[in-house]
Amino acid sequence: RDEMEEWSASEASLFEEALEKYGKDFNDIRQDFLPWKSLTSIIEYYYMWKTTD
């Protein structure tokens, strides 16, 4: 399955904003920016995001 497909463009930009603010503190990212996403989903997205450019 492709996690990228499940993320909207606005969620992707929220994620990048959160990453700038918190770094890899995924709990804070989830709490402040993406509370409707699971922690697992955020972490999986991060690793996919990191490996695609």
Score class of each variant (00 low, 15 high):
residue 11 E to C: 02
residue 46 Y to E: 06
residue 44 E to G: 04
residue 13 S to F: 08
residue 16 E to Q: 12
residue 53 D to K: 13
residue 4 M to K: 05
residue 51 T to M: 06
residue 28 D to T: 15
residue 15 F to E: 04
residue 9 A to T: 09
residue 42 I to C: 04
residue 50 K to F: 05
residue 44 E to H: 08
residue 49 W to P: 05
residue 37 K to W: 02
residue 22 Y to I: 13
residue 2 D to H: 09
residue 9 A to W: 07
residue 20 E to I: 09
residue 16 E to V: 06
residue 10 S to G: 09
residue 11 E to Y: 03
residue 20 E to R: 11
residue 8 S to Y: 13
residue 52 T to W: 07
residue 41 S to T: 02
residue 9 A to K: 07
residue 20 E to S: 08
residue 20 E to P: 01
residue 6 E to C: 00
residue 43 I to M: 12
residue 14 L to C: 05
residue 32 D to S: 15
residue 18 A to C: 09
residue 12 A to K: 15
residue 2 D to V: 12
residue 43 I to G: 07
residue 52 T to F: 07
residue 42 I to M: 02
residue 25 D to H: 11
residue 2 D to N: 13
residue 2 D to L: 15
residue 49 W to M: 14
residue 52 T to K: 14
residue 36 W to F: 02
residue 19 L to G: 12
residue 11 E to V: 04
residue 2 D to E: 14
residue 47 Y to Q: 14
residue 28 D to L: 15
residue 37 K to M: 04
residue 24 K to E: 11
residue 10 S to A: 11
residue 15 F to A: 01
residue 50 K to M: 11
residue 22 Y to P: 04
residue 8 S to R: 00
residue 40 T to C: 09
residue 38 S to V: 02
residue 37 K to I: 06
residue 37 K to T: 01
residue 7 W to A: 07
residue 15 F to S: 06
residue 53 D to C: 14
residue 25 D to E: 12
residue 15 F to W: 00
residue 1 R to A: 14
residue 49 W to V: 10
residue 22 Y to V: 13
residue 3 E to W: 01
residue 25 D to A: 15
residue 25 D to N: 14
residue 14 L to M: 04
residue 18 A to P: 01
residue 47 Y to C: 10
residue 46 Y to H: 10
residue 17 E to R: 09
residue 43 I to Y: 09
residue 40 T to F: 01
residue 38 S to Y: 04
residue 11 E to I: 00
residue 42 I to Q: 01
residue 32 D to V: 15
residue 20 E to Y: 07
residue 39 L to C: 03
residue 1 R to K: 13
residue 16 E to W: 07
residue 24 K to W: 00
residue 48 M to W: 10
residue 16 E to Y: 10
residue 44 E to F: 03
residue 24 K to F: 00
residue 42 I to H: 03
residue 38 S to N: 08
residue 12 A to W: 02
residue 53 D to I: 06
residue 47 Y to E: 15
residue 9 A to N: 04
residue 42 I to L: 05
residue 14 L to A: 08
residue 53 D to L: 05
residue 41 S to F: 06
residue 28 D to C: 15
residue 4 M to V: 08
residue 5 E to V: 04
residue 16 E to H: 10
residue 44 E to D: 11
residue 6 E to T: 09
residue 16 E to P: 05
residue 3 E to S: 14
residue 5 E to R: 09
residue 53 D to M: 12
residue 23 G to M: 03
residue 37 K to Y: 02
residue 5 E to P: 09
residue 2 D to M: 13
residue 39 L to W: 02
residue 40 T to H: 11
residue 51 T to G: 13
residue 9 A to C: 06
residue 49 W to Q: 14
residue 8 S to P: 01
residue 5 E to M: 10
residue 41 S to A: 11
residue 44 E to P: 00
residue 49 W to T: 14
residue 14 L to S: 03
residue 27 N to R: 09
residue 37 K to S: 05
residue 28 D to W: 13
residue 18 A to K: 06
residue 43 I to H: 12
residue 9 A to D: 06
residue 15 F to D: 06
residue 9 A to H: 10
residue 17 E to V: 06
residue 39 L to P: 03
residue 36 W to Q: 08
residue 24 K to N: 14
residue 7 W to Q: 00
residue 14 L to W: 00
residue 4 M to Y: 02
residue 8 S to I: 07
residue 11 E to S: 01
residue 14 L to D: 03
residue 38 S to D: 04
residue 24 K to Q: 12
residue 40 T to Q: 14
residue 3 E to C: 01
residue 25 D to T: 02
residue 12 A to Y: 03
residue 48 M to A: 12
residue 20 E to N: 09
residue 11 E to W: 03
residue 21 K to F: 07
residue 36 W to N: 10
residue 44 E to T: 07
residue 14 L to P: 01
residue 8 S to L: 01
residue 23 G to T: 01
residue 28 D to E: 14
residue 32 D to C: 15
residue 10 S to T: 12
residue 20 E to D: 09
residue 16 E to C: 03
residue 39 L to I: 07
residue 11 E to T: 06
residue 36 W to C: 03
residue 27 N to M: 07
residue 40 T to N: 13
residue 43 I to N: 04
residue 47 Y to R: 14
residue 53 D to S: 01
residue 15 F to N: 00
residue 51 T to V: 05
residue 23 G to L: 03
residue 53 D to P: 12
residue 52 T to D: 10
residue 11 E to P: 00
residue 45 Y to E: 03
residue 28 D to K: 15
residue 20 E to T: 10
residue 51 T to E: 06
residue 36 W to L: 03
residue 5 E to Y: 12
residue 41 S to K: 03
residue 49 W to F: 10
residue 8 S to F: 00
residue 8 S to D: 06
residue 8 S to E: 00
residue 3 E to K: 15
residue 4 M to C: 09
residue 47 Y to A: 15
residue 24 K to S: 11
residue 28 D to I: 14
residue 21 K to D: 06
residue 14 L to H: 00
residue 50 K to P: 07
residue 40 T to E: 14
residue 33 F to R: 07
residue 50 K to E: 09
residue 8 S to M: 03
residue 49 W to L: 13
residue 36 W to R: 06
residue 28 D to S: 15
residue 43 I to T: 10
residue 49 W to R: 15
residue 38 S to E: 13
residue 47 Y to G: 12
residue 39 L to G: 01
residue 13 S to G: 12
residue 50 K to T: 09
residue 39 L to E: 01
residue 46 Y to W: 05
residue 21 K to M: 03
residue 5 E to N: 12
